[in-house]
Each structure stands twice: as C-alpha cells, then as structure tokens.
Design a protein around this nucleic acid. Structure first.
Lengths: 206, 206, 206, 206
DNA sequence: TATGAATGAGGATTCATTCAT
DNA sequence: AATGAATGAATCCTCATTCAT
C-alpha cells in the first residue's frame, strides 16, 4: 500500500477523524489510538505525521481556521459596499461547512484548551482579531469609529456565543436560527447607532 | 484527631481547590492528586468525600451553579418592576463572585465536558432554561410574547458569549465592560422592539 | 499490606532489583517493568518512589557510591601510617561488597551513560576526585608531591581498568587477583619513585 | 540512479555516522533513524545494508577493531627487537586514529553491551587476547614467562583503564598523557621484574 | 540502489481507585 | 477523619522493521 504522495491524503484523513472524535466523545477522550482507529490507520502513523498529540490538535485547529478563512474569502469576493460585506462575513461564519455541529464542537473544545496551550491561545487571539477587524472595516463606513469598534466587538462576541450554544445542542438554535440572531444583532445595533459624521454626508450630497 | 463537622469544611476546601486547579491548569490537567495537594489534603480524602473524579467535578459545578442562584435571589429581592428585575438579573450574572476569572474558566471547562457527561448536560440545560425564563418573565411585561422570548434567548446567548470571552482573557472585556455590553444589548433590543400590544394595555387600564 | 514506614524498605528492595537487572540483562534492557517484577512490586510503585527512570538509576548509582564510601570509612578507621592507609583504600575498593560482579557491572553501565546524563557525570567526577585525593594524601608522605599526584592518578585509573575487566568477566581476574594487581601497581610505583626529599626526613629525625 | 559500487561507500558513511551518534548521544539513544539522518540517507537504507540494529552495531565494532588491527600492523612493520615491538604496540593503541574521543566512546559503549550480546562478547574477548598475546611475546624475551604474562595482562588492563577515563573526559588525561602513563607502567614493571633466566644467571654469576 | 509509507510492539508515565491502618 | 501504600489500566510516544515502488 505504500504509495508515494500519501502525506496530504493521510493528514486530511486523520484531521477529519480528529474532528469527528472530538464531537462524538469530547476533547478529553481524544486519544491517538481512538483517532487512528476512526481514521483507519495505525496509532503510530498519527504520531508520524503530527509528531505529538499537541501537534495533531494544533493542526486540526489550524485546519478549521483555514476553512473559515477560505469560506470568508469566497463570500467577500462578490460583496460590494459595506452592508453587503457585513452580510458576507456573517454568511461565511454561519455557512454549513463552518457552523456544522462537529466544527463548533471542536471550537468549544479548543476554547477550553487555550489556557494550557500558548500556541492555541495565540491562534485564537489572531482569529478573534481578524473577525473583529473584518467587521470593523465596513462598519466604519456606516457609523462613527467608536461605534464601529463597539459593534464589531459585540458582534464577534455574539457569534461565539451562538457557536457555543449550538455546540451545546440547544434546541431552537439550529444553524439558520443562529444566523438570524446574528443578523438581528447587527440590524438592531445599526438602527440605534448615530450615523456617520459630516464628510460622509458631503460625499453623498455631492 | 477526628473532629466532628469537618465534612462541610473539607468539601468547601476541596471544591475551591478544584476551581483553582481548573483555572490554572485547564480541565484536562485536573487530577485528584493535584486537587488534593492544592487543598492541602491527601488524595485519598478527595475520593473519600466525592467518591469519584466525576463526583468531584459534578459537585464543583453544582457549587458554582448554587452560588449563581443565591446571588440572583439576593439581587431580585429588592427589585421592583420589570426593568429593575432585568437589571437585577444582569447584576447577578456579572457580580464579582459569579463573573470572576476562576469561575468563568470553570464554566468554559464544564461546557466542554457537557457532551461526555449526561449529568452535566442536564444541569446546564436547566441553568440555561432558568436564566431564559427569568429574563422572559419581566420582558413579557414590556414587549409582545414572541419578542420577549426572542430577546430572552438572545440575552442569555450573549451573556454566555461574554463569559466565554472573559474566560479567554480577551483584553477590553473586563467584568465591567462585559456588564456594559450586556446592558447595551438589552437596551438596544428594547428600543427596537414593538411595544406591548394595546389590548393588553387596555385590559390593564381597565 | 499497606504498612506505614515501608518507604525505606521498598527503596532498598527496588534498588537492589535494579542492580540485579543491570547485571543480568544489561543497561539497555532495564525497564521499570522488569525491575518491578524482579522486586516483586508493581511498575507503578517504582515510579511512585523514584519518579522517573532517570531517578531510579541515579538513586541506584548513589546507593552503590554510598556503599563504597562507607566501606572506605570502615577500613580507614583502623589504619595507621601512610602505607596502612593506602592498603586500607585498596581493601575497601576490592572488598567483596564493593567489587561484586553485580556492582562492577553497574559501574560499567553508569560509565556508559555518563555522557547523556549530566547528573551522572557530576557524581562520577566527584567519586574519581575523592579516590584520587584519598590516595594522594598518604602518598605525599612517602614520595615527592608530583610523584604522589601521578601515582594517585595511575592507581585510580588502574582500579577502574580492573573493575572494567572484572565486569567483562575476564578469566584470571577474580576479585583476589584484581586486588593483587592493584597492590602490585602500588608496590612497583613506590619502588621506582624517588624518596621524599631530605628536609622532611630531617624534620622527622629531629 | 542506481550506481554500482556504492555499497562500500554507503557502509562507511553509515558506520561513521553510527560512531558519531554513539559519541554524541550515548549508546542507548542510537536509533536507526538518527544514524540515517546523520549519514544523510533514509532509515530504510540502513536496514538494507545492515539488516538489523544489531547488525549495524556489530559491523561498527568490527570496523573500529579492524582499524586498530591495521594500525598495529603498520607500527609493528618497522619495529625491531622486543622493546621496539612493545613501544610499537603502545603507539598503535594510542594513535590518534585509535584513541580519538569518538572511538573510545564507542569502545566504552560496546563494553557496556557485551553482557547482552554474545557476538560482542566473543569479539571483545578475542581482541583482549590478541593484545595480551601481542604484548606477551616480546615480553617473554625480556623477563621470565610468568612475569611476562602478568605484565601483559596488567598492561592491557591499564590501557583499557586509560581508554575508559579518556572516554569519560577526564581532565589531565589527553591522548599524550594517557600514552605516557602506559609507557611508564611498562617501564616501571620492567625495572622491577627479575631479568630473564639464562643471561640473568650469567649476570648474577659475574 | 534508495525511499518513504506503514505497522505494531514495547516502554515510560500518569492516575483513579482501593485498602489497611 | 485521614493518610499513605499499592495497583493496574490507559495513554503517549518511540522505534525497529517490513514492503511497495
């Protein structure tokens, strides 16, 4: 069976098995052996490709983070104007591939591990920053800067809250409902925020 | 030197050590031995009082849930009218004793374990329901039922999101700022919600 | 079975088993499991008392070093004059308890590990220094300082060489023969060395 | 690109890497993987050429034994008379190529393994015998047979002791100093030994 | 000739748990 | 009430080894 170029295939296989294992048994029950069995390979192979349990988990987190980033690019590609961009960001975060039960379970698990693992901490901080700044940018075209920052933070917190509840299997919070809640938050905040200051007016007036 | 009535003291001691251990090392690193050392007792004693690792963790979760409930009673005791009740609920959830870093770390940890442990699942579902119903009740006096339910859910999701971020040590989200975000959410939602329908008013007026 | 105060007993038991295991199977085959089985305890207990494989090995080396030191004290206690002291040192190093096959096997094993383990390196350097200085002291009363140092070094090297060969099971080098070789080395070196310079004689004569 | 005649090149490469690895990490840390990486080839290749870890180690030991033998031939080629032959033997044993730190480290490592591996035991016994007999032969021309045997054994033990200490990195025992110690041993023993029978009689008769 | 994929066994280590005192 | 001794299971990880290409 040893074919050349299996590495990428195996990595995918094993990472996918890891996500499934986290979802089904919970983070603490994730062992190299179980992941290997789920992936249909030997335990040694997992260590061979990821060196470490930590390495495996880090790679897994990186993978789902990458998926999110790619989804985001895809959605942003066709978005024009601030409102469309904001919607695109939400669409990406609540896309089936990113908001799937398995995936949010994994997020939850990784959140719980952030304290112990500095590498995880760093990755997560980065992701949060990126989401916030992605949101803040179009928001600044609609409302004053301070408001934009505040709303961006609130949005990203709310999105995580929705993920958390989804991961916990809350009834009445399936993907679409969660998405609606997020949209509503944005809508509500924009409705209550003061409009953007003068120059914007001038431009529009011109 | 077998002293009588040590049981309660010991339990408190050990639970407190558990919370600290979760906060400092993360859930997966919690072992009976470490908890025991932190509490200054022998490992055997922990088993003696809590039978089990699961038992210890369950008791710990029950403990912080109880603290929250007591805090809530205290705050609700002096609240009059729907707005005051809503504020009281938020005040309880963001009280220093309930929103402390150690405590939110523990919540996060328990969320992560909910999948594996049905007992935890049940306790958490109960807590969420209680918070939502606590919120829904006064809300119903201010806005139509459907809106009240929606806002209650959104609020409780948002509160969890804020806890999560606080546990992750997000800068710019200390206790007071988190509290402010939650208040703002409520404010914003109420401002945008339709008022409670007329007939109701009429009925009350009558 | 859990009696209080077993610690010392167990440590001895396990260390003795370690020495035997090294002798019978060689250093590389020493595993906690094998040592435990030989000692008649569980593998976990070994870890419990010595924390580590390294810890076990270090403790073992310390043990046999201590034995040597005690043997030396015993022999030196009744020795008067430089020649008697020199003989006492050799008698200690070739005493049945210190030059037993098991023990020299262990020495050989530890020599081989010195490179990898700084702690071992340090202990061994200390032991060598002590032997050399123990020898140099009485030698200085018999021959000039430079000679004394040289002979002390040569002796200690030769003793190690004899241990090495004994450990390798060389025929014609049992304990007594090895001892005789060492005595001969000393004798031969002293016979060929210049006597201690005159003034000393004068002083003593005076 | 299967080139012909690579075999010898590869074997040398790999054996050299093995010696270096033993020296740097210690015998127990020698793994096929590490040796392969040091040699700049794949792990599989090592197995291919040496079949086995044991095989690799045996080949390595054979290699350094061969080097010593060749060095010895070279030095003996130009030696005339017993004293010159004795010096030549020492010169060979302390030649830079044979007494290098890497090499003596390897000797030490192999000594430690002799117990476990009968093949190693046999090879080492052979080497010791050869050295002793090489020494005994010229010695017999200088001193009575019993003395010759004794001195030959003592010399070979002393040489090993010096190697051991050199491998342990003893300060004040570099190659030249070790060599001097060995020469001194020989000198000292010869000075104290009775002369060889026949002529000795004549001398005494005179 | 040479590689890289893959396995499986073995060993260190950690822990929950039990039990006698 | 409390301890400390002791076990055994579980898990991570490392490696020698084999095999297809």
């Amino acid at each position: 069976m040893p074919k050349v170029g299996m590495e990428e295939v195996r990595r995918r296989q094993i990472i996918s098995a890891t996500v499934r294992t986290i979802h089904e048994l919970g983070y603490e029950k994730v062992t190299l052996g179980r992941v290997a069995r789920t992936a249909g390979v030997s335990a040694g192979l997992v260590a061979h490709y990821f060196r470490d349990k930590q390495g495996l988990l880090a790679a897994t987190m990186r993978h789902i983070a990458d998926e999110l980033r790619m989804e985001l690019s895809r959605h942003l590609a066709t978005a024009h104007g601030p409102r469309e961009r904001l919607d695109a960001i939400l669409n990406a975060n609540f896309a089936p591939r990113c908001f799937a039960p398995e995936i949010v379970s994994a997020w939850l698990a990784f959140w719980g591990q952030a304290h112990s693992d500095p590498k995880l901490t760093r990755m997560q901080r980065l992701l949060r920053r990126r989401l916030r700044s992605n949101l803040a940018h179009p928001l600044r075209q609609l409302v004053p800067d301070a408001e934009a920052r505040r709303i961006a933070t609130g949005m990203s917190v709310f999105v995580d809250g929705l993920s958390l509840r989804h991961a916990l299997g809350e009834e009445g919070l399936d993907r679409q409902q969660a998405h609606a809640f997020a949209r509503d938050y944005l809508q509500c905040q924009l409705a209550n925020a003061p409009e953007r200051a003068e120059e914007a007016h001038d431009v529009q007036a011109a």
